[in-house]
């Protein structure tokens, strides 16, 4: 096999760490982006609206 074990483990571990950090930053930016505030508030309250029928 072309890829040996050490390389694979090294890649998996370092890339995994990088990936984790990048993803966390991405999620945080999305979550706290000011323009998203309204959407989230809408979503938060939307489930309490009357929902006896589908909207057409």
């Amino acid at each position: 096999m072309g890829i040996d074990h050490e390389t694979l483990v090294g890649f998996a571990k370092s890339w995994g760490l990088f990936y984790l950090i990048a993803m966390a930053i991405g999620v945080l930016i999305y979550t706290f982006w000011p323009r998203n505030r309204k959407r989230f508030d809408r979503a938060k309250n939307s489930i309490l609206d009357k929902d006896d029928k589908p909207w057409r």
Binding site: L20, V27, T31, F40, I47, L48
Partner: peptide
Amino acid sequence: YYYLPKRAERPIFSYRLSIISFWGITF
């Protein structure tokens, strides 16, 4: 995340927190 706010008739405390915990758990 659906039935508890619905039954309590109060929106979820923090929608943002729910997003963060979603990706945290998934990852």
